[in-house]
Design a protein around this nucleic acid. Structure first.
Lengths: 161, 161
DNA sequence: ATTTATGCAAATCGTTTGCAAACCT
DNA sequence: AGGTTTGCAAACGATTTGCATAAAT
């Protein structure tokens, strides 16, 4: 955990390093918004989770997160590219820190039984193939691909038993 | 379009061939359900669309499809594996005939601007890579992968202009 | 001081469900 | 007759929004 020098005193960042908070603050400012303490709490809850979580999970994890503000701030953070919205197999939207902030490109294991979502990394072969597919599409169709999403659907370890 | 011999007279199947309807009927019967005329209309609307469509689009396409019954029948057809539910980037669930019934494995181009979804086929290299990834996962994690979902996110031709 | 952020409570809207009538075998 | 299916209207529930207060600069 990184030691941080603030205006007053050195203290520990509880979960989200300043390396992450600084660029987040910049992006928010560019959108005319502020990195408030509430938004920090939200980012910390997301970092703590380390996987795509529902608003319910976030709120349960930190009671200082009110529902409406949580939704609003997740939408805001999504807009500025800090948070990604993930759809599982159930009715709940899930959110996670964008890859740029977690450090690695990954995909999702979606449990069709309980709806939970876990991260995993694909082989370079897969990624290369996907990149090729995108290039090919750029020529063939009028579709302009900007990102991709590869999910494996199945049954998670806890639902298998 | 295939010519079909019924009990009375030869006629054209409006969109869904008997080749599709027969196995659908079988699957429904196995679930203690029937292939009713209303369900035929729904299947025909889905076949006519040829891409993932919302319930709103289905109902607009054929006014004989009431909303509640459409939802119920889509859920039923999904349960028996005839229809797949697809999530785009908006709040609308989209439905299409399962690959088994359309004939080819495909993936989706999701427009982040308008939410529309189109089908496309990936290279064998991509599919091979995905298959490998699934095998690797089966060993590494407790996750049992049963299907995969590869979507390209971007901007569709009509939203680009 | 003025703009932005918060949080409660109410509204929204895609989807689901209760129930009585219609249908099929 | 005994089951399934339908369709209207009402209910549901995750998410969004109005608005008055609090915070930040």
């Amino acid at each position: 955990m990184a030691l941080i020098a603030t205006g007053r005193a050195a203290r520990y960042a509880p979960g989200v390093s300043e390396d992450v908070l600084a660029p987040v603050a910049t992006r928010l400012r560019r959108a005319g918004q502020r990195l408030t303490s509430g938004r920090r709490l939200l980012l910390e809850a997301l970092a703590r989770a380390g996987r795509p979580v529902t608003t319910g999970e976030l709120i349960a994890d930190d009671a200082r997160l009110p529902q409406s503000t949580t939704y609003r701030n997740l939408a805001l953070l999504e807009q500025v590219g800090v948070v990604h919205r993930v759809r599982g197999s159930d009715d709940f939207a899930r959110f996670e820190l964008a890859e740029e902030f977690t450090g690695h490109h990954h995909h999702h294991l979606v449990c069709r039984s309980c709806g939970s979502v876990e991260d995993f990394e694909a082989s370079t072969q897969v990624e290369q193939g996907v990149a090729d597919a995108i290039n090919r599409l750029a020529k063939g169709t009028g579709f302009r691909a900007e990102a991709h999403r590869l999910d494996l659907l199945g049954t998670c370890a806890s639902c298998v038993r």
